[in-house]
């Protein structure tokens, strides 16, 4: 394994008291740090507070593969992937791009994810429809009817039928499609033929939308009001706010914080760009798995008797969960220095 890998997160030290009240709970054993180390979590390892001798043993018996062979098979996969990525994908390498509405100087922008062929997290046309449908449903209250929509199609290849389809869906929310911005000639031609106003641009300059390299300025929060069911994944290069439940099998991936005003039961990954200071907050924290930056934790086998609004954050020992109001007292009302302590 490479030198850059972090050591295993010990699975035994997620217990921490905040403000002497003791109302914190385990996140369970950590699965791996998402950056490098394999999943070492034991099945049925119950987490006991204050036990610390187990992490070494975990790594030992989780290693049934001889390392030589492991490297062999990894290399093969990777070499195959290299030629699949063309140089122009660089600018669209953010895997968190999904369909998104954004207001920009009085205009409503509809941002489409990049072409599936050029994306690390491809969104095909069927998924595109789903996402648009969901965004329309979930943010209905905020979309003023009759606001002209400017669609940023990036490098997506759209035919006139697909454009018409998007227009129809926008039409259900009384949003007229005013203009289409694209970097692809075929899309521009198709849009123009279908009678839309088109602006063809070079690959990198999108209206009001310069690619934010991860780690820099985050997007505006994405606000969604609906239930995330199994199989649904919401990704966003900023903070995500869900007004509703997230069910097992769903996942939220945000480069910023995650707020779930409801039950968090799926996977939640905050700070996916690597920001370890991101947090996950939920009224009812019962996740399949929590990730913050490259840290991973899963719920304890024994769920707590009573749920209260909680906050997951990264402490010195990994992901921890604290009751929201106590977390606020200690972390949010205190000087910043303590935040990173």
């Amino acid at each position: 394994m490479t030198a850059g890998n972090r050591p295993m997160i010990s699975d035994s030290s997620y217990y921490m008291q905040i403000g002497n009240t003791g109302h914190t709970r385990d996140t369970g054993d950590a699965a791996a740090d998402a950056n490098g180390n394999r999943l070492e979590v034991g099945a049925g390892d119950q987490i006991y507070h204050g036990v610390s001798a187990e992490s070494a043993e975990l790594i030992d018996d989780g290693e049934p593969i001889d390392i030589e062979a492991t490297e062999d098979f990894i290399l093969e996969i990777e070499s195959n992937l290299d030629d699949a990525e063309s140089p122009e994908t660089k600018s669209e390498n953010n895997p968190n791009l999904q369909v998104q509405f954004k207001s920009d100087r009085g205009r409503l922008l509809l941002l489409l994810p990049p072409d599936p062929d050029n994306s690390r997290n491809p969104v095909n046309s069927e998924e595109l429809r789903h996402q648009l449908r969901q965004r329309l449903d979930a943010s209905e209250r905020f979309l003023q009817p009759h606001t002209p929509v400017h669609m940023i199609a990036r490098d997506r290849l759209l035919d006139s039928r697909q454009i018409q389809d998007i227009d129809d869906m926008l039409g259900t929310a009384n949003l007229p499609l005013k203009r289409i911005y694209t970097s692809r000639r075929q899309t521009a031609v198709a849009a123009a033929t279908a009678g839309y106003s088109v602006e063809q641009q070079t690959a990198l300059s999108y209206l009001g939308q310069t690619q934010t390299p991860s780690g820099q300025v985050l997007e505006e929060p994405l606000y969604l009001q609906y239930t995330l069911r199994s199989g649904v994944e919401v990704r966003h290069s900023g903070t995500i706010i869900i007004l509703g439940d997230t069910n097992p099998g769903s996942s939220i991936v945000a480069e910023g914080d995650i707020f779930v005003w409801g039950r968090l039961r799926g996977v939640a990954h905050a700070g996916s760009g690597g920001n370890i200071d991101c947090r996950i907050m939920a009224l009812y924290m019962q996740p399949t798995q929590l990730r913050i930056a490259d840290k991973v934790a899963r719920s304890p086998e024994q769920p707590p008797a009573q749920y209260r609004p909680e906050v997951a954050y990264v402490g010195p020992e990994g992901i921890r969960i604290a009751v929201a109001d106590e977390f606020a007292q200690v972390y949010l009302n205190a000087p910043m220095a303590q935040d990173n302590a």
Binding site: G44, I74, A84
Partner: peptide, 29 residues
């Protein structure tokens, strides 16, 4: 009984987001 130990999936391996051994979930039992 491994549902909450999944970090990566086969798709992530194929997309080059992780190595194959990272996606493999070992069973502790």
């Amino acid at each position: 009984g491994l549902e909450n130990r999944i970090v990566y999936t086969a798709i992530d391996v194929l997309a080059g987001e992780c190595r194959l051994d990272q996606a493999l979930v070992k069973d502790k039992r």
